[in-house]
Simulated assay, not measured.
Amino acid sequence: MNKKAQYLIEGITKDIITYLMEDHDMTMPVAIVMFHNSETFEKLSDEATGLYIESSAYVYEILKSEIKMGKIK
């Protein structure tokens, strides 16, 4: 993975963990585990999807949909 993609993925991950903590009153460790075990994180980490160039808010909307549908592993 190139450094620019890695940097963007890390930034989005940081933002989403913050959103989870604020919106769902989670602790940081719980939010980290939840996001890292999601299909959304899997897709974000795959450069081929191009999801890493989207905004954090956009990626969070995908995660919220995944949570609503109950697909978190």
Rank of each mutant, 00 (worst) to 15 (best):
Met1Phe: 09
Met1Asn: 12
Asn2Ser: 12
Asn2Leu: 07
Lys4Ala: 10
Ala5Ile: 07
Gln6Leu: 10
Leu8Val: 05
Gly11Arg: 15
Ile12Asn: 05
Ile12Phe: 00
Thr13Asn: 09
Lys14Leu: 11
Ile16Lys: 04
Ile16Val: 08
Thr18Ala: 09
Leu20Cys: 04
Glu22Gln: 10
Glu22Lys: 10
Asp23Ile: 02
Asp23Ser: 06
Asp23Leu: 05
His24Ile: 01
His24Trp: 06
Asp25Gly: 04
Met26Asn: 03
Met28Ser: 07
Met28Trp: 03
Pro29Asn: 01
Pro29Asp: 08
Val30Phe: 11
Val30Pro: 03
Val30Arg: 07
Val30Cys: 02
Val30Lys: 13
Ala31Tyr: 00
Ala31Glu: 04
Ala31Pro: 03
Ile32Trp: 01
Met34Val: 14
Phe35Glu: 01
His36Lys: 15
His36Thr: 10
Asn37Tyr: 03
Asn37Phe: 00
Ser38Tyr: 02
Glu39Thr: 15
Glu39Cys: 11
Glu39Gln: 14
Phe41Cys: 08
Glu42Met: 14
Lys43Glu: 13
Leu44Gln: 04
Ser45Ile: 03
Asp46Val: 03
Glu47Val: 08
Ala48Gln: 09
Tyr52Trp: 11
Ile53Glu: 12
Ile53Lys: 12
Ile53Asp: 07
Ser55Val: 07
Ser56Ile: 00
Ala57Lys: 12
Ala57Gly: 09
Tyr60Asn: 05
Leu63Glu: 01
Leu63Lys: 00
Lys64Gly: 10
Ser65Pro: 04
Ser65Phe: 12
Ser65Thr: 15
Ser65Asn: 15
Glu66Lys: 11
Lys68Cys: 08
Gly70Lys: 14
Gly70Gln: 10
Gly70Trp: 11
Lys71Trp: 14
Lys71Pro: 12
Lys71Val: 13
Lys71Glu: 15
Ile72Gln: 09
